[in-house]
Design a protein around this nucleic acid. Structure first.
Lengths: 207, 207
DNA sequence: TCACCAATGTAACACCGCTATAGCCAGGGC
DNA sequence: GCCCTGGCTATAGCGGTGTTACATTGGTGA
């Protein structure tokens, strides 16, 4: 088996290079003009290929975008991985909240792509991201400090952080708005057990 | 001055009827296929007009959509007006939270149009809606029970309710999820002063 | 009555996502 | 060494989109 495994055949290499060129062009365009403004023809021009090539490799405009979004999720995950979280699980959750908002502010178009309001597109990478948040909440539960059930707590925290990030991105808020910390601390305080008292409030939860 | 004021001239009446036909067709289409799927030509077919008529009256596809969105805000506001809120301002805020989510669940496409993540479209009707929320929070402040500054409290509450509604609409949650009440109560509890103490919170607000 | 002008239609432009078809050419069997 | 196969790419085009220049009509104010 001479060069069958060690090196890619020249055809495969060229094909892979074409895929990369297309993905790079698409990502660059998505970051600037968004999914709405993304045109296959413009991707073609930037990548130096023609339309059938794109459709051969990715099948669809939506699939091409989904592929780029997956890369965005990877980038998003690394934004967490590259920084050290506090050891205390509660402080780590607060920290994650800030990183989340920070990322959305730094990559508004990517954020919109990943968590935009297009009807339920449960990408695997998105679910993995959600699972990362669940693990952080679980760390609090493991420390015996989580008040509500795990799933409820995770979902509630995710909703709050998403609401805040959405508003920051839409420039409704300035990034240093005190309301951000207000939402963050409201959620964290509600999630952890108070001090000694188990839980007192029973106000009507369902409508 | 015979029929100058008492009755509209026939031309104006016809013109207004045309506008209404276009708006009705557009609203119906927007509710079913969303802004993305809305086609001027389809609106033309349903309203029984041709394209230049639409452009003459509304100027733009975006302007037409914006006009429909304004009507949506009016509908949204009436969803609040037609129901009696609790007298207690804190309970009224909790109630507003539920009505908000309820409306988003009942009119997901309209909600996406109104509060979707398109980069900052500060429609007057949208600002009026936000102002309605601010008044509710101000009622709590007037009762001497609001802990944070008014603007921060309003913004935080709005972010939380928007995050929850977004997730409910995207079918990430079921409408009776316990997490909804969790976010609601977390925000309300954080907004009101604990017991008798005027204002206490000093937790790290800026990052 | 009559000229004006708002309102509407005709036809077209430039662009879009997408694809049927055909050609190129590296790779592998003979 | 040759030819054939098949993956990859380009040409050209389809039906659709938002938008607009231009022509036309018919109420309306003078």
């Amino acid at each position: 088996m001479p060069a069958k495994v060690t090196a890619l055949r020249t055809r495969d290499r060229e094909s892979e290079a074409t895929r990369r060129a297309i993905l790079d062009a698409a990502e660059q365009l998505l970051a600037t003009v968004g999914e709405q403004g993304l045109s296959i023809r413009e991707v073609c021009a930037r990548a130096g290929v023609t339309a059938p090539t794109i459709y051969h490799h990715f099948g669809d405009k939506a699939a091409l975008v989904a592929r780029v979004v997956d890369d965005c999720f990877a980038d998003f995950a690394s934004a967490f991985a590259h920084r050290a979280a506090p050891h205390d699980p509660v402080e780590a959750l607060r920290w994650a909240f800030d990183r989340y908002v920070e990322y959305g502010l730094g990559h508004p178009t990517h954020y919109r792509l990943m968590f935009g309001n297009r009807p339920s597109r449960p990408s695997p990478a998105g679910l993995a991201s959600y699972d990362g948040l669940r693990r952080r909440v679980m760390a609090i539960a493991d420390a015996g400090r989580l008040a509500p059930p795990l799933e409820d707590a995770t979902a509630a925290f995710w909703a709050a952080v998403h609401g805040v990030t959405s508003l920051v991105i839409s420039e409704f808020w300035s990034p240093d708005n005190a309301a951000i910390a207000l939402v963050r601390d409201a959620m964290v305080d509600q999630l952890i057990t108070p001090k000694p008292v188990p839980a007192r409030r029973t106000k009507g939860a369902s409508k």
